[in-house]
Design a protein around this nucleic acid. Structure first.
Length: 200
DNA sequence: CCGCCGATCTTT
DNA sequence: AAGATCGGCGGG
């Protein structure tokens, strides 16, 4: 069983501390350390895009683990997921926040020079804008060292704790604590979400 | 710090 | 008609 072919609720906490890497036209590299993610399961998770089955938008979710599922939402924003689980299960992990470590000046440029560095990558839409991710990266293999967009597990910084909470921005499935984040990072998305009563 | 709201477009 | 968002604005 490979890293990404597990249940998304197992993959999600293990992604904290790994690096998102983006190569621009072969000569510019952008990097950030993942500090917040959310797990979305397929057929049994009403908050998942795959809950109602295969559509044109979510078809990558039904593919192999380790692929990038990138979707466009609210007329403005893109969000990046990693497909997990066995092929056909349509589960994924949403990348919600990063600590930028390389290419910060270019990230600022892409984000229209925000006043605070925190605002570069503390949300899923902000990550995609900063890293230049859109539907052209939908379906890319995030596990290949040759991909222009990939996730690497090299050493980053000391491992810190991982907490859970209810997921952000959903109206169904709020009973599941499937948001995973490093509470010591200033880059976690600013919305505070309460822990759901007890279920996991 | 918090909550509300508008922008804009894809999907259902 | 709602949505796995963001940024600006107003009030406490």
């Amino acid at each position: 069983m490979s890293f990404y072919s597990r249940d998304p609720t197992s993959v999600a906490p293990d992604l904290i501390g790994k690096q998102l890497v983006r190569e621009y036209s072969g000569n510019r590299t952008l990097r950030g350390i993942i500090v917040e993610v959310e797990a979305y399961r397929g057929s049994d998770d009403p908050a998942s895009h795959a809950f109602r089955g295969l559509t044109k938008r979510n078809r990558i979710m039904f593919g192999r683990a380790g692929l990038a599922y990138v979707y466009f939402t609210y007329g403005f924003h893109h969000c990046l997921n990693v497909v997990t689980g066995n092929e056909g299960e349509a589960s994924a992990v949403l990348i919600r926040a990063l600590e930028p470590t390389e290419g910060i000046e270019f990230l600022k440029h892409n984000r229209n020079n925000p006043v605070k560095e925190i605002d570069l990558t503390n949300g899923p839409g902000k990550i995609c804008q900063a890293f230049g991710i859109d539907r052209r990266q939908n379906g890319i293999d995030l596990t290949s060292s040759k991909s222009e967009l990939r996730i690497e597990s090299g050493k980053t910084r000391p491992v810190r704790s991982v907490l859970t909470s209810s997921r952000v921005g959903i109206r169904v499935g709020v009973d599941k604590n499937w948001r995973y984040y490093d509470p010591s990072s200033p880059f976690i998305s600013s919305k505070r979400v309460k822990e759901a009563p007890s279920s996991n």
